[in-house]
Each structure stands twice: as structure tokens, then as C-alpha cells.
Simulated assay, not measured.
Amino acid sequence: MIYSVILACEIGFWLAIVAGLAARYLLRRPALGAGLLVLAPVLDLVLLVATALHLRSGAEPGPAHALAAIYLGFSVAYGHAMIRWADVRFAHRFAGGPAPVRKYGIDQMRASWLDVGRTGLAAVIAVAVMAGLVWFAGITFEPFRSTVGLLGLILAIEVIVAVCDTVSPRKPPAAATGTRAARGEQAAHRP
């Protein structure tokens, strides 16, 4: 049951975003668009309540409940950024907005470290949700221990990516292409 609720909330999340952006840009009704976008966090509340009630009714805690907690954590931590990401692309495609800008160098490094912060926040929220479920349903935390380790692994990978982006950030294509062209030109002029 919980897997179905998670799937329905994920589909609903993206439908709310698409409907909100369509209302904002295609129908030119920003208030309606904002109202539809507000539905995205409401779906998180639906998932939280469904998961808590499922556990309280005597369901055995398991991976589905842990996944619900992870989903909630990442939805809260990354939700605004995902909506902003979709908004930029939707505005560009349907409303003549500026093209999305890919990040390079310092901007890429900053974005990577912001993602570390978001992932850390998502992990904290997920653990807090699991602790809240344990308290609400009167169960032990034991079934969720491995999920805490998984969240730590996800955060560690995010940190490794950010360190790599700090040490060796992506170069803009124009600079990289110009450098390659210059190298190719020099090689062509060698005797």
C-alpha cells in the first residue's frame, strides 16, 4: 500500500508542477499557477499521514516506510530547487524566457556544495520522519537503522562529487573548444 501512495505522490508532485507552470505561462494566470504549485507540498503531508497511519494500524515497519521517509526528506529539501529548475525550462520553452544556464567553474562548485547542504537536510528530515513514525506508532527504530546508513552513504557520495567539482570544475565549452582548436592548429603547423 505504501509503495502505491509513494508512487501516487511522486506522480502528483510532477502533475502539480506541470499544471502550475502551464497555468502560469500558457494560460497567463499566475495566481492559479501558484495555487497549483502549492499542491506539491500538500502531497508530502498526505504521504506522511498515510505512512504514519499505516504503521499505527499494526503494519510491520519495513523498506516501504523507510522509502517514504527518504522521499519526504528529499522532497522537502530539493522540492523548491526542482520547481525552480522546471520553471526556468518551462518559461524558456513556452514564454520566451531566457535559456537555462549550465554552471561551470566557481558556479558549478557552489551548486555542488549547495546540493551537499540539501542532501544533508534531506537526510536529517528523513531521520526525523523515521523517529516521528517510531514515536507515533510505538515501534522500535531497529527496522530503520540500515536506512540511516544508506542516507550517510548518499551524503558521502554527494560530498565526493562536490570535492571533485571543487578540485576540477567543468570548463565552459567555448574555452575548452578554443583550447582544443588552438592545440589542433599548432599541431597542424608543426613540421
Rank of each mutant, 00 (worst) to 15 (best):
M1I: 08
I2E: 07
I11V: 15
W14F: 12
A16D: 03
I17C: 07
V18F: 04
V18Y: 01
A22K: 08
A22D: 04
Y25T: 04
R28V: 13
P30I: 15
L32G: 02
L32F: 06
G33T: 07
G33N: 02
G33F: 02
G35K: 10
L36K: 03
L37T: 04
V38N: 03
V38A: 15
A40V: 09
P41W: 11
V42E: 08
L43S: 09
D44F: 10
D44A: 12
L45A: 11
V46D: 05
L47G: 00
L47M: 07
L47C: 02
V49A: 09
A52M: 11
L53V: 10
L53M: 11
L55E: 08
L55S: 06
L55F: 11
S57Q: 13
E60M: 13
A64M: 06
H65E: 14
A66M: 07
A69H: 02
L72A: 01
F74M: 08
V76F: 13
V76A: 13
Y78G: 01
G79F: 04
G79I: 07
G79K: 06
H80L: 10
H80C: 01
I83V: 15
W85M: 01
V88L: 04
A91L: 02
A99H: 01
P100W: 00
V101L: 12
R102Y: 07
K103R: 14
K103T: 12
G105M: 14
I106H: 12
I106A: 11
M109W: 05
A111P: 05
S112E: 05
S112W: 02
W113L: 02
L114R: 12
L114I: 13
V116Q: 05
G117S: 07
G117W: 08
R118L: 09
R118P: 00
A123P: 00
A126H: 06
A128Q: 08
A137V: 04
A137T: 07
F144M: 05
R145M: 07
R145Q: 12
S146V: 13
S146N: 07
L150G: 08
L155R: 01
A162C: 09
V163P: 05
C164K: 14
D165W: 05
S168G: 09
P169L: 13
P169W: 04
P172M: 12
A176C: 02
G178A: 10
G178E: 14
T179G: 09
T179Y: 14
R180T: 08
R180A: 14
A182S: 09
Q186W: 10
A188E: 11
A188N: 05
A188C: 04
R190P: 01
P191K: 09
P191R: 13
P191F: 11
